[in-house]
Design a protein around this nucleic acid. Structure first.
Lengths: 109, 109
DNA sequence: TTAAAATGCAGCAAAATGGTTGCATTTCTG
DNA sequence: CAGAAATGCAACCATTTTGCTGCATTTTAA
C-alpha cells in the first residue's frame, strides 16, 4: 500500500482519537464489554445526545460497533483500527530510528 | 498518572496526527533531517502559509521543533510524543486483549 | 393500557479548523 | 545597495465540529 493511501486511511482514526471525551469512551469500553448510551453517558459532563454524536464519530471510523438490543443501543470496541494506528506509528518511528542510527554512524566516521 | 491526565496529554497529539497533510509532513521529516518551510511545501497542493499553519499545529503538541537558521526556518521531528501515543495505544489494546482472554476463559468454564 | 425508559432526529448556535490573500520584515547575494 | 528569497503576521472566509434543546418513536414494565 502506498504512503498516501495509508495516510488517508489512518488520519481519520487519529482524528477520532483526538478528543478527550472519545478517549474516555474508548477507555470505558476497553474491558471488552458492550455498554448502552445511558451507561456510557454516566458521569460525563455532557448531554446524552452529545455522547451519541461522539459515539457516531467513533463508529464512522470503525473504532466501535453498535447493536440494537431491545430499546437500548449497545456499543462495543473494535480492536482493528487501533491495531492499524499502532502499526502506523510503529513504522514511522522505526523509520527515524534507523535514520538516527545512520546519522550517528555518519558523524562517527 | 491518572487515566484522565494521560488522555488530556495524548488527545491533542492524536488530533494533530488526524490530518492527511500533517501525516505527510511527519512522513517527510521521518528521515531525521531538518527541512525548511519551502522544502516541506514542495509538491503539496497548498499555499506556503497553509503549510506553516500545519507545522504550527505539530509544533504546539511537540511533534516537531523549529530552529531559525539565517532566513529560513528548519523543522525537525521529535520522537517523544509519538512514542507516548504508541504507548497509549499499546496499553489500551493490552487491556482488552486481557479482557477477551478472560471472557473466553469464562465461557469455556 | 399507560407511563417511564432509551433512543433517534432535526434544527440551531458557538467555536474551531483549514484554507486563502496581502503586506511587512529579515536575510542573503550579485 | 538593490533585489530576490524565506518567513511572519493579520484579516478574512467557508466548512466542520461540538454542543445544546425540543420532540417523536420504540420498547419495556407496572
Amino acid at each position: 500500500m502506498s504512503n498516501v493511501s495509508r495516510q488517508r486511511q489512518t488520519a481519520p482514526v487519529f482524528a477520532a482519537l483526538g478528543d478527550v471525551t472519545r478517549l474516555e469512551l474508548i477507555s470505558r469500553l476497553s474491558d471488552g464489554q458492550s455498554q448502552s448510551i445511558v451507561q456510557l453517558s454516566d458521569g460525563l459532563s455532557l448531554s446524552r445526545q452529545g455522547v451519541t454524536k461522539h459515539l457516531a464519530v467513533l463508529q464512522n471510523v470503525g473504532l466501535v460497533a453498535a447493536q440494537r438490543v431491545g430499546r437500548e443501543c449497545r456499543y462495543r470496541i473494535q480492536p482493528e483500527p487501533i491495531a492499524d494506528a499502532q502499526d502506523y506509528l510503529a513504522k514511522a518511528s522505526a523509520q527515524w530510528d534507523d535514520a538516527i542510527v545512520r546519522l550517528r554512524a555518519a558523524v562517527e566516521t
